[in-house]
Amino acid sequence: MPTPQTTLDRLESEAIHIFREVAGEFDRPVILFSGGKDSTLLVHLAIKAFWPAPVPFPLLHVDTGHNFDEVIEFRDQVVAQHGLRLEVAKVQDWIDDGRLEERPDGTRNPLQTVPLLDSITSHKYDAVFGGGRRDEERARAKERIFSLRNSFGQWEPRRQRPELWNLYNGRHRAGEHVRVFPLSNWTELDVWNYIEREGIELPSIYYSHQRDVYLRDGMWLTEGPWGGPRPEETVLHKTIRYRTVGDGSCTGAVESEASDIREVIAEVAASRLTERGATRADDRLSEAAMEDRKREGYF
């Protein structure tokens, strides 16, 4: 008898199956890659799915210009190490030529949607892989693995197709595209356990380090091009790590001593907060914040 498959084996096989379906059915797929842990995992799985052949798709990063230096360095290192192709859509370029305007609060997270949709249109991408997981948030819990988007990139809950067995329907009309989520069925803990099992390297900021931070809306933010502490906010030197990696203006750190993967797994397993709830200001706007952003074409 073959060795029984563990939960991680099954999740890996499912994700590889999804990558291969997309390669077989779409003309111009692309993987969204930010250097964060979920998209790094996506790239790892894509490499496994097509080995020993190269990954048959490029990567796309929508760069807010508010990223952590460590993450951008890591992104470029992964691309070079595996001989991948990376397209970068810089929010700054959209601001410079007037297609986007800086927001008064300085956060650029909501500004990613337009460069993403413009890039999808100009490169004629028809399948866009994202690292979204259904355990992240309630509106994402209802997301399909193949999520149909109209020509405005919008998610319409009532137009989503039933997903039966493991037969995915990727048909779409000209101008429409499909967002594909191979990690749909993974939990945060599965992701970390798999990263450990596979020895996948991550940006250093996922592990505990010393950093100057200030408290805003219950989150530890750090100084950067996105702005710094307001006069009433006090900068403290703390031992922290990041549980999610996004736009610096809205991604908070957690106080943590977890300096390696085993300690991170122990911390995640014992955590009483979801990763988005703990660290993402963008999801705190309203009860339906994520749903509203998805309808606008966000991931």
Partner: peptide, 14 residues
């Protein structure tokens, strides 16, 4: 689902 043909020097006939 997919035919894997690397056509690289190490895997010429794969």
């Amino acid at each position: 689902q997919y035919v894997i043909r690397p056509r690289t020097p190490e895997h010429l006939d794969y």
